[in-house]
């Protein structure tokens, strides 16, 4: 991707991020922060690609790549579990409210 195209993508993505959550109620701030924390766990994909391209004969490259994938996977899995747990509670709260 050339620089100027990337700049456009950055700009559009930034406005999207801003718009998408601009009307979020306070009640969802923590889950949303947690949810966006999960979404940047997609860094796992990038980590997999770089580890996949690392030189199998270089322990340094393999080590860095391993750390990258490990951390990326932890970000994604942990982010998901924590967000899902918080939001599951909101569902329960709503039922109780109907009673």
């Amino acid at each position: 991707m050339d620089g100027i195209t990337a700049l456009y993508v950055f700009m559009l993505a930034a406005f999207t991020g801003y718009e998408v959550i601009s009307r979020v109620p306070v009640i969802l701030h923590t889950p949303l922060m947690s949810g966006s924390n999960f979404v940047h766990g997609v860094v796992l994909v990038g980590a997999m690609v770089v580890l996949g391209r690392a030189d199998p004969d270089s322990p340094l490259q393999l080590a860095i790549g391993f750390v990258a994938v490990f951390l990326g996977a932890a970000n994604a899995a942990g982010g998901y579990v924590v967000t899902e747990r918080m939001l599951a509670m909101f569902k329960g709260g709503k039922k109780a409210g109907g009673a």
């Binding site: 991707m1 990337a6 993508v9 950055f10 993505a13 930034a14 406005f15 999207t16 991020g17 801003y18 998408v20 959550i21 601009s22 701030h29 949303l32 922060m33 966006s36 924390n37 979404v39 940047h40 997609v42 860094v43 994909v45 990038g46 690609v49 770089v50």
Partner: peptide
């Protein structure tokens, strides 16, 4: 890495996190 999924997801979170 030339990976658009990372670019979009990362920047969207960057912007929404800044707003938050």
């Amino acid at each position: 890495l030339g990976n658009p999924a990372l670019i979009v997801a990362g920047i969207v979170v960057g912007a929404s996190g800044t707003l938050l």
